[in-house]
């Protein structure tokens, strides 16, 4: 986006249920843009049925994504593919934005 801010804070740790966790906060210039990204990224389900959950939400103008997974391998694949999708959405917004007034 404005400065392609992808350097969001993240952590990977084993929580009490013995699950791997990963969380990513992506700042956008406005709530509207964060919401567009969320609604573009949300419709497609994870290809894998079990072993991983991914939750996405908006907090102000930040897109917050949180994963829990049984195995690091599964987590890496999901986070990796999410980053590719996010990058494409942000590039699309840069090239064809800003959003029209509603």
């Amino acid at each position: 986006m404005a400065n392609g801010n992808m350097a969001a804070p993240s952590k990977e740790e084993i929580n009490t249920q013995n699950k791997l966790e990963f969380s990513l906060n992506v700042p956008f210039p406005s709530t509207r843009e964060a919401s567009i990204a969320l609604r573009s990224l949300l419709p497609d389900r994870e290809p894998r049925k079990g072993g991983i959950t991914k939750k996405m939400a908006i907090s102000g103008s930040t897109l917050c994504v949180r994963w829990t997974a049984d195995e690091a391998r599964i987590l890496r694949v999901s986070v990796g593919s999410f980053m590719e999708h996010l990058t494409l959405v942000m590039e699309t917004m840069e090239a064809f934005g800003p959003p029209v007034l509603l």
Partner: peptide, 20 residues
């Protein structure tokens, strides 16, 4: 194919929202 379909859908969804 899943991955190529998602790629195209992401851009379509994003521009549809940007352009209203």
């Amino acid at each position: 194919m899943g991955a190529p379909l998602v790629t195209v859908a992401l851009v379509a969804r994003t521009v549809a929202q940007l352009w209203g």
